[in-house]
């Protein structure tokens, strides 16, 4: 079984969900709408022919000229069948209803925190949505294309007494 079989299964089972599906150099890229995302991910995870049991990556890209400028890219992998698909979802930067995949995949937790940290996309129903890479008091979202180039805080502005850790009982 290869990934083309997976694409066939997905197309047969969810014809209305898929906006477009491409095969680029042997890699399957499926574009869907964000409303269908959680249901589609659960289908990928639970379908007995597919069993995409691992969300191996989740990241985003910024296309500032598009109306829905943030493109979130999900990388699902099936350990049993050894194939992977890329699922792409477009969203506005200030989207309030963007679904979180943490209920389906535990690995989505930190990936979504990274996307929130770098792009400011607020995932709904995420259990612990806070910055993961930048300091907690950071201003702005650095990987957006309109973030000023080489914008840096002055050394005097660094809070030397606040390293940013949180008591582990409070999480």
């Amino acid at each position: 079984m290869d990934v083309m079989f997976a694409l066939t299964v997905i197309k047969e089972s969810k014809p209305k969900v898929i906006v477009s599906a491409d095969n680029i150099k042997g890699e399957v890229h499926i574009r869907i709408k964000k409303e269908d995302l959680l249901e589609f991910a659960l289908f990928l995870k639970t379908d007995s022919r597919l069993e995409f049991d691992m969300l191996s990556d989740l990241f985003a890209a910024d296309y500032p000229k598009k109306p829905e400028r943030i493109e979130v890219i999900y990388n699902f992998y099936s350990i049993k069948n050894n194939f992977r698909v890329f699922v792409k979802v477009n969203s506005k930067a200030d989207e309030t209803e963007y679904p979180s995949l943490t209920s389906a995949y535990n690995s989505a937790n930190w990936f979504e925190r990274e996307v929130y940290d770098m792009f400011g996309l607020k995932f709904k129903n995420h259990p612990d949505l806070k910055r993961i890479l930048n300091p907690d008091d950071w201003d702005g979202y650095p990987l957006l294309k309109d973030y000023p180039l080489r914008k840096r805080p002055e050394p005097e502005e660094i809070k030397m007494d606040a390293p940013g850790y949180i008591e582990i009982e409070k999480i």
Partner: peptide
């Protein structure tokens, strides 16, 4: 990095 700076100073 700016996140590491307080630790270096400490």
């Amino acid at each position: 990095s700016y996140k590491m700076a307080p630790m270096v100073k400490r």
